[in-house]
């Protein structure tokens, strides 16, 4: 039996158009625009998919862990609908505004409490603050090896053979277990849960742990300011009698500007 923990985060939909994106400079966070959805952070979904790919071939138990507000239960339930076995929410006012250091600390404490895992999987970076450190941080706090930016996982003789995506290709790394891996979208498209599974998952109880159950750490980094950069509009629109003519006019324009 392979035991996998996957850490997932619920975030504000990162694809909301820049025009609708607003921040509260006092609270130093984004203000969700009307109707904006809370979603699972992209690469965390890839991490769930990576766990499910292992489960496709081996007897596996997948535990989903999320640190966040009560609403994050819906993200955990979505992972269960995708095929994870159980979930746990870590929620406390004391966890709010945690930086990556404090977040990784709480997650690592929860993982220790939950028991022994062969794999701990995280997304390569979160889709809101883009911090990119929680996975490596958990590995360090637990004292286990880590490989980041994984596109493929295979098991061989109690070890994992993983493909790490680097800037000019891939590295194949053999790593002893237990190990922490951070996953990228190269793992493949995440499976879509069936309606029946979504319905079943909606009934699953998600236990919540708070600061009475797990220790808290102090943040290391402090945010001084948050602001939205200004962009100046300056686009010259190239016209034509029809789109075809606009196309050749564009080429003429670029030639005149000595760009081609």
């Amino acid at each position: 039996m392979i035991n996998i923990a996957v850490c997932v985060k619920q975030i504000l939909d990162p694809e909301i158009p820049a025009k609708a994106f607003k921040i509260d400079p006092e609270a130093k966070r984004a203000i969700p625009p009307k109707g904006a959805e809370l979603v699972i952070s992209d690469y965390d979904e890839s991490a769930v998919e990576a766990a499910l790919k292992i489960k496709d071939s081996y007897e596996t138990k997948i535990t989903v862990i999320s640190l966040g507000p009560e609403s994050a239960k819906s993200t955990i339930r979505r992972c269960i609908a995708m095929g994870a076995d159980e979930g746990i929410l870590l929620s406390d006012a004391l966890f709010d505004d945690s930086d990556s250091f404090a977040t990784a600390f709480v997650l690592a404490e929860a993982i220790k409490k939950l028991g022994d895992f062969d794999f701990i999987l995280c997304g390569r970076q979160e889709g809101d603050w883009d911090a990119g450190q929680v996975g490596s941080g958990i590995a360090e706090l637990l004292g286990i090896p880590s490989v980041t930016m994984i596109g493929k996982i295979e098991l061989k003789n109690e070890k994992a053979i993983v493909e790490r995506v680097i800037s000019d290709g891939r590295e194949i790394v053999e790593i002893p277990l237990p190990a922490l891996l951070t996953v990228g979208s190269e793992i493949g498209e995440a499976r879509y849960p069936s309606l029946r599974r979504i319905r079943d998952a909606s009934k699953v109880e998600i236990p919540t742990w708070n600061a009475e159950n797990i220790a808290v750490a102090k943040s290391r980094n402090k945010m001084l300011t948050l602001f939205v950069p200004t962009r100046e509009g300056r686009c010259e629109f190239i016209q034509g009698e029809n789109p075809e003519e606009a196309g050749s006019n564009l080429a003429v324009k670029l030639r005149q500007a000595k760009l081609i």
């Binding site: 990162p14 809101d128 290391r220 945010m223 948050l226 950069p229």
Partner: peptide, 18 residues
């Protein structure tokens, strides 16, 4: 330390106190 956040929609400045 100046870093783009929210996919580049915003910019944050940090210091390391601890």
């Amino acid at each position: 330390k100046t870093k783009p956040v929210y996919g580049g929609n915003a910019i944050a400045k940090y210091i390391c106190e601890e």
